[in-house]
């Protein structure tokens, strides 16, 4: 499932997935076709994660407590 928009990426999930792909390669399963698919996915994830880090800003919203006056 590729990330739809850069802003919609779930950073933690995408990072976990990337770590999972790295772990897959470390296990040394000799499946080139799967490896190439995973490589493509990893590249896509890393790019989205970097973009998110470089472009996104922190958002602050004040929550007013109901009985505040």
């Amino acid at each position: 499932m590729p990330p739809k928009k850069k802003s919609e990426i779930d950073f933690a999930k995408a990072f976990d997935e990337l770590e999972g792909i790295t772990a897959w390669f470390e296990q040394g399963e000799p499946d080139l076709e799967k490896g190439l698919q995973k490589f493509e996915r990893a590249t896509e994830l890393a790019k989205a994660l970097k973009t998110k880090l470089e472009e996104a800003e922190n958002k602050i919203k004040e929550i007013r407590l109901k009985s505040d006056s």
Binding site: K52, E57, N58, K61, E62, I63, L65
Partner: peptide, 11 residues
């Protein structure tokens, strides 16, 4: 340090 964090401030 970070980007993309949503902070709800309770004053």
């Amino acid at each position: 340090r970070w980007s993309g964090l949503e902070i709800d401030l309770y004053h």
